[in-house]
Simulated scan of single mutants.
Amino acid sequence: MKKHFTLWSFVLLISVFMLAACGNEESGEESNSEDGNQGTSANEEESIKIVAAHNQTSPENPYQDGLLEFKEVAESKSNGSIEVEVHAGTLGTSESELVESLQLGGADVVLVSPGFMSSTGIREIDLFALPYLFESYEHWEEAVDGEVGDEIANIILEESDNKFKLMGYWSAGVRHYYGKEPIQSIDDLQGMTIRTQTSGVVADFWQQVGAVPTDVAWGELYQALQQNVVDSAENAYPYFVQENHHQTDNGKYTSETAHDFTTRFLLINNEKFESYSEEQQNIVLEAAAASVEAERQALYDQEEESKQTLLDDGAEVNEIDTAPFIDIAVPLQDEVAEEIGVAHLLEQIREQR
């Protein structure tokens, strides 16, 4: 009797365990069908859309190459959870419009120059607008990809109250004078109107060499040169040749002043960036790094090609002694760098030559 009771007790105990196990399994299935699915949704990356813009209208522009690389890398690395919409001049051909779009949320990623960014009150970035600051692309890359570039990036983030995050430095080439007649010396610039920035260090430089800075929107410059609204302009070969400025009456002579190895800021709205998941942030930064490499290479490749196109079209190019221009630029560099608190960075750049 005792043995029989023990056997039945054992059977009963096994039954209880089996029922409990079944109950737990069903409970687990319910969890998977409800809480479990919610967990999966939480772990899935929420899709985001990034509006990226530059001010150039030509589809062959290095800016476009750079942003298309940004788009490709971001979308492929995220398996489509990140969508990038690229705007080539459609959100504004003026960089001031792009800065405003970035501030107001109309664009998430933009490309702008130091001169237009300084309008936000971040004066330190005028360092990169100083004429004759760099003497080669190698010199420029060493500065922007090193400690100088890192410090400027931190300044932009801090002084914009964490609104703007710099993700990389692009180049817009080396800028030269082009106009209705070649210049052989500074004397040839006296009283000549030139389309350039009309405020800040860039304007100060052109005024000091005797020219008259004049404001013309990029999209209107061809007509302004053709109709004698301005006597001249200044830019890098890939940009003004693509716009056929060299075919206008006031754009057929290029004098290689090489006054600016240009810097452009690839900026993202930091509030948007901070709202992304950590994985998405890493992908965006990886895409930005890829865009830097792609844009620079496209620019370097196009410089000689564009110059040859200009010559083939019958426009003319002459070299010029830049020493008198540099003699004017150096004191201006010292003055501005001291005023905006980046004299130590200016000295660092000079030491890297």
Results as ranks from 00 to 15, higher is better:
209 V>N: 00
222 Y>S: 03
219 G>L: 06
271 E>H: 13
215 D>C: 02
213 P>S: 05
210 G>A: 08
268 I>S: 00
231 D>W: 02
252 K>Q: 14
261 F>T: 03
217 A>R: 08
272 K>M: 08
247 Q>P: 05
256 E>Y: 13
243 E>S: 11
211 A>W: 01
256 E>T: 15
246 H>C: 07
270 N>A: 15
211 A>L: 04
260 D>Q: 13
251 G>Y: 14
236 A>L: 02
236 A>V: 01
236 A>C: 02
260 D>E: 14
224 A>P: 02
260 D>T: 11
242 Q>N: 13
271 E>Q: 15
237 Y>T: 00
238 P>A: 08
276 Y>Q: 09
249 D>H: 10
211 A>H: 01
204 D>G: 02
207 Q>N: 14
221 L>F: 04
249 D>T: 13
264 R>F: 12
256 E>N: 14
209 V>G: 00
252 K>Y: 10
266 L>T: 01
252 K>L: 10
204 D>E: 15
244 N>F: 09
232 S>T: 05
262 T>C: 14
244 N>K: 06
244 N>Y: 10
221 L>C: 03
216 V>N: 06
260 D>R: 11
232 S>F: 03
259 H>I: 13
210 G>E: 06
214 T>Y: 04
229 V>R: 11
222 Y>E: 05
225 L>M: 07
247 Q>N: 12
205 F>E: 07
208 Q>H: 08
256 E>A: 11
265 F>K: 04
226 Q>S: 10
249 D>C: 07
220 E>H: 05
271 E>C: 09
242 Q>M: 13
256 E>G: 09
237 Y>R: 05
208 Q>C: 04
260 D>Y: 15
205 F>Y: 12
222 Y>L: 09
207 Q>V: 08
228 N>A: 10
270 N>T: 04
243 E>Q: 14
211 A>Q: 02
274 E>W: 12
256 E>W: 13
217 A>Y: 06
252 K>N: 12
232 S>I: 06
256 E>H: 15
245 H>T: 05
235 N>H: 12
247 Q>M: 14
222 Y>V: 03
251 G>F: 11
216 V>A: 07
230 V>N: 06
218 W>F: 06
250 N>R: 11
244 N>W: 06
254 T>Y: 09
274 E>P: 05
214 T>W: 06
